[in-house]
Computed example of a mutant assay.
Amino acid sequence: MNDLEVMSAAHDAVMTVVVISAPLLIVGTVVGVAVSLFQALTQIQEQTLIQAPKIFATFLTFLIALPFMAETSHNQFLRMVAQISAPTN
């Protein structure tokens, strides 16, 4: 593999990680902001109030997005194996 192929493979791997982790990060962020807004409006300053909904929402999102995450990861693995096993010129 030359430098361009290595950089392309690294870019593809990083983008796959971003795509796989995006649903969990987005849901965690949205739930965190919503709970923080609720806490600010009601002046309830309980630390466990912000953690429980985020953990529950992230776990639920993980269960829903798991087939997509597994398929994306599997496709990335197959692309890398094909790239590694491809004959070089």
Rank of each mutant, 00 (worst) to 15 (best):
M1W: 07
D3E: 14
L4F: 11
L4V: 14
L4M: 13
E5A: 15
V6D: 04
V6I: 15
V6T: 15
M7W: 12
D12K: 06
M15R: 09
T16H: 07
T16L: 11
V17C: 15
I20A: 06
S21Y: 06
A22Q: 13
P23L: 06
P23K: 03
L25N: 04
G28C: 07
G28P: 08
V31L: 02
V31R: 00
V33F: 08
A34D: 01
V35L: 01
V35W: 01
V35I: 15
S36P: 02
L37R: 01
F38Y: 08
Q39Y: 08
L41A: 10
T42D: 07
T42P: 05
Q43E: 10
E46R: 05
E46F: 00
Q47R: 10
T48R: 03
L49E: 07
P53C: 11
K54L: 07
K54A: 11
A57P: 02
A57K: 02
F59Q: 00
F62Y: 12
L63P: 10
I64Q: 11
M69K: 02
A70L: 13
E71Q: 14
T72I: 06
H74V: 07
L78Q: 09
R79T: 14
M80D: 06
M80E: 04
M80F: 13
Q83E: 04
S85D: 01
S85K: 02
P87H: 06
T88L: 09
